[in-house]
C-alpha cells in the first residue's frame, strides 16, 4: 500500500496529481475539522523539512529544533499582540529572528562534534523553554500569548477562515518542498551529504565544514521559524509548552518514519502519523508508548524509513530489470534512477 503510494510519487506528473489532491482536499473532507487537521499536519511537515536539512542531509542531530519552532511562534505572537504589528510584517520578522538566532547558536554549537552537538542543542532547547516560561516581562510566562493576529488576506481572500488558511499553508509547504528538492539535487545539497559521511573526508574534499554546517543550520531554523509563525497564526494562542522537547521528539519520529535524508520522507511521515494519532484519539496522550519502540525498531531495522526503504527497493528493481544492459548500464541506470538520486 505504502509502496504504491510511493511509486505514484515517482512517476512523472505524480507530483502534480498529489498537488491536485491536496488542492481538492477541502472539498472532499467531510468537515472543517479535517481540513484543520490537514493544515496543522502541513505546518508540522514544514518544520520537519527543516529538521531534515540539518539532521537528515547534514547528519547533525539538532535537539533544539522545537525551540526554534517556538521562537518563530512567539516572535509572531508577541509582535502582533503586544507590539501591535500586523500579520505579514511580523511574519517576515519571525523568519529573520529565527534565522539570526539560528546563526548565533549555529556558530557556537557546530564547533562541537556528534554527541556534544546533540547534548548542547538539547540544552539550548531547554534554555529556550525556560526563558519562555520564566521571562514574564517579555513572554507573559506560563500564561502564554493571546490575541495573536491572523494573516489578513490580499483582496477577497480571508485567511481567518479554515479553508483559505489551509491553502495558505499548502502554498508555503509546496514552496518548502520545491526548494528542498532543488537543494538536495544541487552541489550544495551534495556538500551537506558529504559532511554527513564524515567531517574529515569532507574537509579533505576541500569543503569548509563550519560555513556549510552553519548554512544548513540557519536554513533549518528558518524552516522551523516559518512553521512556528504559521502555527501561531493558526491557533492564535500559544504558551511555553510549544517549546517542550516533546515536540522535537515528535518531529524526529515523523522524520524517521517517513525517511530521514529523503525528499518525500518528511511529508509522508508527518501526514501519516498525524492522521493515525488523530484517528486513534486515545493515542494522543499515550502515543509515545508506541512511538518510542517504533523509533527503536526503525533505527535498528529500517534506518531510512518508508521512503528510504522504497527507494532502495526501486533501485534494485531497476537493476534486475535490465541485466542484459549491464555493460552499458551506467547511462541507463543513471537515467532511470534519476528520481532516486534526487531523493537521495
Amino acid at each position: 500500500m505504502l509502496f504504491k503510494l510511493g511509486s505514484l510519487f515517482m512517476k512523472p506528473g505524480a507530483k502534480m496529481a498529489l498537488l491536485a489532491l491536496a488542492i481538492v482536499f477541502p472539498a472532499l473532507a467531510s468537515n472543517e475539522y479535517q481540513v484543520y487537521v490537514m493544515a496543522s499536519a502541513f505546518v508540522w511537515a514544514i518544520a520537519v523539512y527543516g529538521l531534515n536539512i540539518i539532521t537528515g542531509y547534514c547528519g547533525q542531530l539538532n535537539l533544539a529544533h522545537g525551540g526554534f519552532f517556538a521562537i518563530g511562534a512567539y516572535t509572531l505572537g508577541l509582535l502582533t499582540s503586544d507590539a501591535g504589528w500586523s500579520f505579514w510584517p511580523a511574519f517576515v520578522a519571525a523568519l529573520l529572528v529565527t534565522a539570526v538566532l539560528g546563526f548565533l547558536v549555529g556558530v557556537v554549537s557546530l564547533r562541537l562534534k556528534e554527541h556534544y552537538f546533540a547534548i548542547f542543542t538539547l540544552c539550548v532547547g531547554f534554555i529556550i523553554y525556560l526563558l519562555m516560561d520564566k521571562w514574564e516581562e517579555l513572554t507573559h510566562g506560563p500564561v502564554g500569548v493571546r490575541d495573536i493576529a491572523a494573516p489578513y488576506g490580499f483582496g477577497v481572500v480571508d485567511f481567518t477562515e479554515t479553508t483559505p488558511f489551509y491553502y495558505l499553508v499548502l502554498a508555503f509547504l509546496v514552496f518548502s518542498i520545491w526548494f528542498m528538492g532543488r537543494l538536495s539535487r544541487s552541489l550544495l545539497g551534495r556538500t551537506f551529504i558529504a559532511i554527513r559521511n564524515g567531517d574529515e573526508l569532507a574537509q579533505s574534499l576541500g569543503i569548509n565544514l563550519m560555513r556549510n554546517k552553519v548554512l544548513a543550520f540557519v536554513l533549518s531554523t528558518t524552516y522551523a521559524g516559518l512553521a512556528g509563525a504559521l502555527y501561531a497564526g493558526m491557533v492564535r494562542f500559544i504558551g511555553p509548552e510549544e517549546a517542550n522537547i516533546i515536540h522535537t521528539f515528535d518531529m524526529i519520529t515523523y522524520l524517521l518514519v517517513g525517511g530521514i535524508g529523503t525528499l518525500t520522507g518528511p511529508l509522508l511521515g508527518t501526514i501519516s502519523i498525524v492522521w493515525i494519532t488523530q484517528s486513534l484519539q486515545f493515542l494522543e496522550e499515550y502515543r509515545m508508548i508506541l512511538f518510542g519502540p517504533l523509533l527503536v525498531v526503525l533505527v535498528i531495522f529500517f534506518p531510512r524509513g518508508i521512503n528510504g526503504q522504497f527507494l532502495t527497493w526501486m533501485h534494485h528493481k531497476a537493476q534486475t530489470l535490465s541485466p542484459a544492459k549491464k555493460k552499458k548500464s551506467s547511462k541507463v541506470q543513471t537515467a532511470t534512477s534519476g528520481e532516486v538520486k534526487n531523493n537521495a
Binding site: I193, R196, N197, G198, L201, R304, G308, L311, T312, H315, S330, Q333, T334, S337, V340, K341, A344
Partner: peptide
C-alpha cells in the same frame, strides 16, 4: 564512509 544508498556516480 560513503552514502551507501546512493549511486557511485
Amino acid at each position: 564512509n560513503l552514502f551507501e544508498q546512493a549511486s557511485v556516480l
